[in-house]
Write a protein that binds this DNA or RNA. Structure first.
Lengths: 286, 286
DNA sequence: CGCTCTTTTTGCATTTTTGCAAATATCGTT
DNA sequence: AACGATATTTGCAAAAATGCAAAAAGAGCG
């Protein structure tokens, strides 16, 4: 594909269904549109449109191409609604990535509120269990549980989330509400699957509680929380995935994660990103 | 973004790190590259490159843009390695979508074999629990468990997969190996989460076995199978997610899914797609 | 049928882009 | 210091793309 622009013409014709429609959208002469479509079909050696009733109708091959071109167009839209010297309009998308607990519980009500304030801003919410692609920064705003955020991103610490022991009350240990590696031994514990072993509290659990009976394991904190709710046992979890469930108690060893709201340095001047991150910061710091 | 081609120049410079590198890759004059980059920076009003040591180094804004442009480029690559009048080379990608059980168990060994036969073909494997986006057909080849495939796709039925009861032997019911809604009542059953209720066997389970004690639920068949393996209970599953686990027995009511291999009509002439789908068809029909 | 709208197609003028050559600057290496 | 490689910049000519006008053809509609 030596000319990406050809696809732009193709898309315009496919979506408007006529040369004149495309002509208007692209703001060029209709013969230009005609020549580029013709050229593209010749280059590809495939008929992309069926000319019926003076309308441009996609052929099978055309539809196949259109699927890809839509993906291209969406990626281009992403380019558009970015930097561009600080887009000051309050219309368009903002993409947020966050731990899955926040995607399910904490954020939705806040985002509903936010949309009422800024009806023009469309929110794309990406639940993200792995924080690997932080350096790529494919979202505009990232909520991340980390104790030292990468330096190429800017943001602030919103809260520290304690890890506590969750589970049905029938597992309660009675006494002080403080649990140790020993007291856990008698209880059915929900443990981490390999993917979660990068988390410090989980490492501690595996190391100091080898004698504990693990009744189930999950590869996400949400999964662990779901098992807790199903009454299978107790688990060590950060507050955000608990969804209002009261904690059984805390551990003698204290764990906590810092929650950061991060954006890319060059997105700070973008009005949508600014509005959204300020709103979230303000509401989550309460 | 009125010129998609500008991004092509941007990408070439960013990846080669110099004007001359980009010049060579694009096969154009260096001043053309220079002028387009300069024009793009002016249009965006942002500096995209830092000129140090006679090298083009991306600025922060440039890196942000590059993330998006990479997505654009990948989408364009997808356009390239498509139809194009039946690509006869055996080099490039083929994208397969399939139920997650196949992605984890059945396909990997077959694909290893396939890669040995066609080292130039790169396989992209998409585990796909929802078969909604079939009409979009974002993959080249789809393996789908359905009893009536959409007519705009062509393909063939590879096998019929029975649904059987799986679980640890200690749950075995002894007698005939045939289970009914009644005999299930005494056993710990792993049920479907809402997302799985579109499957007929799961609807049957919910309807006729309301008295059954559900000990856990999952939103994917793989998740259910994982719970079965963990010994939590028994579940009704298609063979593909069982991963060699022997079935406990079958039900009095018989369930089965047909597995289809589907491709788009206009991809049949593509050599890679043909090679891959023929290979998979042949091996999976045994 | 006559009217309008759109596609299709072709010349030609105009505009834009590109290639080319040349001159200068910068940097690293020898 | 000299050299080579690359970036930067500019004028001009060549090439390519586009706009414009016009004309033929088909379809829809009253």
């Amino acid at each position: 594909m030596d000319s990406w622009d050809d696809l732009r013409y193709f898309q315009a014709v496919a979506e408007t269904g006529s040369l004149t429609g495309a002509r208007k959208r692209l703001g060029v002469n209709h013969s230009t549109v005609f020549r580029r479509i013709k050229g593209l079909e010749e280059k590809l050696g495939v008929r992309l449109f069926e000319r019926w009733d003076a309308r441009y109708q996609l052929t099978g091959a055309g539809e196949l191409l259109m699927v890809r071109v839509e993906q291209v167009a969406e990626a281009i839209d992403d380019v558009d609604r970015m930097i561009l010297g600080g887009d000051q309009t309050l219309e368009g998308k903002v993409r947020i990535t966050c731990p899955d607990g926040f995607a399910y519980y904490q954020l939705p009500p806040l985002l509903a509120e936010f949309r009422a304030l800024y009806p023009g801003i469309e929110i794309e919410l990406l639940a993200d269990s792995d924080d690997l692609n932080l350096s790529r920064m494919e979202a505009d705003i990232a909520l991340r549980a980390t104790n030292n955020p990468p330096e190429h991103l800017v943001g602030r610490k919103l809260m520290t989330m304690p890890w506590q022991l969750y589970g049905s009350e029938r597992f309660a240990h009675g006494q002080s509400g403080v649990y140790t590696a020993k007291t856990l031994s008698g209880m059915p514990v929900i443990g981490p699957e390999r993917a979660l072993l990068r988390l410090k509290p989980m490492q501690w659990l595996e190391k100091h509680c080898s004698a504990v009976s693990i009744v189930a394991r999950a590869n996400t904190l949400m999964g662990m929380a779901a098992l807790v709710k199903a009454g299978l046992g107790v688990a060590l979890l950060p507050d955000d995935v608990a969804d209002g469930l009261p904690p059984l108690g805390s551990l003698d060893r204290e764990f906590q994660s810092d929650l950061w709201l991060l954006t890319h340095r060059d997105l700070r001047s973008n009005a949508r990103v600014k509005a959204c991150s300020q709103f979230l910061t303000e509401r989550l710091m309460r």
